[in-house]
Design a protein around this nucleic acid. Structure first.
Lengths: 123, 123
DNA sequence: CAGGATCCTATCCGATACTG
DNA sequence: CAGTATCGGATAGGATCCTG
């Protein structure tokens, strides 16, 4: 991971200092596109969800990874978290404005991939 | 990883059988959003590139991971590969139509994240 | 219910060396 | 140039147990 100057890439008609190892976007992108990040974000698209609702929505995720992923997304400002100090406690997660902004291309990405995939009738 | 019925999520106004562990989209999404997949795809956005050009474009990627990532993307039909049987050999990679389709939301995602990030003047 | 802590394994991934 | 093969360390991530 040697650092160094980085070429500028034109993305969507704009210039950025991209792909540089310490490009600040890299971290966020990595977390958004992490194994579970994308599914959490898409899950929260329509409405806020409780922890267990998220766990049940996203097949195959462990509690550990869900908690970990949520923590990262909250820290990045993509997801908010509210705690209802009841018994039992209720913790709800939802998308921030930034989160919704990010969610759009994410959902679009997912849609385009899904639309292209085996029509399922082959199975 | 117990299988089972999976809820249907509304994404971008459409219904899909999503998040199911063996949802075919999951694999492609995972590879597209893999650590290096997204950068390879964005790198190829403007034009096709040779292997070494890709390696130099994407800071921090190793030859192994580049080759591995490219192989996966070619297999998924997102990237094409042509070999010029010259000496030395020239191998070029570019986006297929599917690849370009996927690339749009990917670039948009990246743009939105970048736009939100530290204005850099703080540094 | 919502998680933190611990343990342990699978895989990711970089470094290096080698091939056509 | 464009890879493949192998090794080994780092990390991701699952399983389980425990707490407020």
């Amino acid at each position: 991971m040697t650092e160094g100057a980085q070429f500028r890439q034109t993305v969507a008609g704009q210039r950025y200092e991209v792909f540089h190892t310490d490009c600040p976007a890299r971290g966020v992108v990595d977390r958004v596109t992490s194994r579970w990040g994308i599914w959490v974000l898409i899950s929260l698209r329509s409405n806020a969800l409780r922890f267990y609702e998220l766990r049940e929505s996203i097949q195959g995720i462990s509690e550990k990874m869900l908690a970990q992923t949520l923590r990262a997304l909250v820290q990045d400002g993509l997801v908010w978290r509210t705690v209802e100090p009841t018994t039992p406690p209720q913790v709800t997660y939802g998308l921030t404005e930034f989160g919704r902004e990010i969610d759009e291309p994410l959902a679009e990405l997912f849609d385009r991939i899904t639309r292209r995939l085996p029509p399922r009738e082959a199975g």
